[in-house]
Simulated assay, not measured.
Amino acid sequence: MEKPLILVTNDDGITAPGLRALIRTMKELGDVVVVAPDSPQSGMGHAITVDSTLFSKKVVVDHKEGAPSEYSCSGTPADCVKLALRVILDRKPDICVSGINHGSNSSINVIYSGTMSAAIEAGIEGIPAIGFSLCDYSWDANFEPALGSIKKIVSEALTNGIPKGTVLNVNIPKTKSAPKGIRICRQARGNWKEEFDKRTSPSGKDYYWLTGEFELLDKGEDTDEWALAQGYISVVPTQFDLTAHHAIPQINNWNLNEQ
């Protein structure tokens, strides 16, 4: 029986420890092919390369026997998935997993996330897809406590499928031991209170660093932010149909067609 084909990607770059941990875990479930950015692409959202050259090459990061095929890509996470499906793979993957991201992609962060945009790109193509993020921005973050749960989530997705038009946004709390469990959640309402830190370069030119603090606007106990704060892994089914269906009746009452 043919093993599942698992496409693995990320936004932190092909050498990121989170990606390496995800690859090791996915090798226990199927045949793995890796297509990932050749440099960090965090915060790129669903950007794609349309006005410059896109490069890709086969690389060897893991020299151990049985290491998966790996390809670096000069573009964004969404580019990586497009390139994998159109150029690199000889059959459609059974699932696409993205991550493990170094840092949270809960709440409104999902909008900016390159990790989740790679998963969404796969979902648009009808491929079950999951984005994984650990709430620890450190490059040497400890991913080990979450790997058993990640394997379980992907295994269940392979067995049961993911609802059409949906991808999973999975966030993992920073813990020294295994998380308390897994909670299916909704995305918490929140935003960033942002500021630009103005500085001056040695040549006298002004430049800016984006800074800010996350503001949670949601006190619900069914949200990803609540689950993470309690030590649970949050799983948010996320759709890429951005239509605000509830708003259509109200806007239909506008006098748009009257002269």
Rank of each mutant, 00 (worst) to 15 (best):
T223M: 08
D94S: 00
V87Q: 09
D197A: 03
I88H: 08
G181P: 05
V8E: 08
G181R: 02
L228F: 10
Y232L: 06
G190A: 14
S42F: 02
K219L: 14
S104I: 11
D11T: 06
K205W: 07
E194T: 15
N101C: 12
V59P: 14
I172C: 07
D38T: 11
L29E: 00
C185F: 06
G204F: 05
D38Q: 07
G103C: 07
Y207M: 01
G103F: 04
A78E: 10
L22T: 11
E258K: 09
S107P: 11
Y112E: 12
A247W: 00
I108N: 10
K82R: 13
G220V: 02
W226V: 04
R24Y: 08
T200F: 04
A47Y: 04
K174R: 15
A47W: 04
S72I: 02
L217S: 13
E225F: 10
P128F: 10
K205F: 12
R186W: 06
P173F: 06
A229T: 12
V235D: 03
E70S: 15
E215N: 08
Y232E: 10
G123D: 08
R186V: 14
N191D: 14
E144T: 14
L210H: 11
A118C: 02
P40A: 10
A122H: 08
Y208N: 11
D79R: 01
L5C: 09
N105H: 13
V60I: 13
S201T: 13
A129E: 09
L134V: 14
E156R: 01
K193D: 14
L217N: 12
V50K: 07
V34I: 12
A119P: 04
S149K: 01
D12R: 13
C135I: 08
S106I: 02
L147W: 06
V35R: 01
Y112H: 06
K3D: 09
Q187L: 07
G13W: 00
N253C: 13
V87F: 03
L216Y: 01
L158Y: 04
I153V: 05
I48E: 15
S52N: 05
W226Y: 15
L158G: 05
E121W: 00
N10I: 02
P128H: 10
R189T: 06
V50F: 03
L5K: 09
A122N: 07
A178V: 07
G231E: 01
M44N: 15
V87W: 01
R186E: 15
A84S: 07
G30R: 00
G220K: 03
S72L: 03
P145H: 14
Q239P: 08
G75V: 06
W139T: 13
A84L: 04
